[in-house]
Design a protein around this nucleic acid. Sequence first.
DNA 1: GCGACAG
DNA 2: ATCTTGTCGC
Length: 246
Amino acid sequence: MPIIQELLRDNYSFEQAESIQIKYHNLITQALKNNYINNFELIETIVGVDISYFKKGNYEYGIACAVIWNLNQKTKIGHYFTKDRINFPYKPGFLGFRECKMLAKVILKIPDKPDIIMCDGHGKIHPKRFGEAVHLGYALNIPSIGIAKNPFIGYSEWHKIEKIKGKKSPIWAEDPKTLTEKQPNELLGYAMCLNDGSKPVFISEGYKTNLDIALKISFYTSTAHRQPEPLYLANFFSRKEVNNHI
DNA sequence: GCGACAG
DNA sequence: ATCTTGTCGC
């Protein structure tokens, strides 16, 4: 499947952006799930992506970093940067339209296509089930997962999680307290602690992945920080690159 | 209607 | 996200 340019433009109105989220979410719902990643053992390389921002004159710019990570060796293989002007304003629910254009650009610099994208933002935990991780994975046709540092929608007892690596709590679309046993609910993701002593992060599936895979990858790429190492490093390098640039 | 709201 | 002073803990 080719790259979907419609998902990589950043000059939509909020109304147009929302209808695109609905359109592609509907397509995901209709899609066959037999080409999803469902075997953790087959994942070799992960790319963690993040953007740091700065202002110059009246304009806002971002520097994106993509960190390539080998899952088995637990090592960084390399990293890439790209710089661009930011056009789309920040608005909760529309982060993908602000960041995916540049994130796609930096990912396409990687010589060997990574098996999975790790995003600093939500995936399915989104009003239209189309958070940045879903958005980016769909645009590039690469499986993806979302790992955010703050909650967005949904109900969970994340504040009760012990700060012990692996401890987790589900995030539901509806408040379980207001539902009876047999009423349906939707599991959006999990809040999980990835390092002893750290606050939890908010993990959800992106594109062509399931929640189980998202949790396993998050767990096994975490070593010394609150976030998985590929995201921690992408944030560290992009921040450093901004500081060097000014 | 009002406030909250990923990065 | 970014800016930014003081403060707490390892």
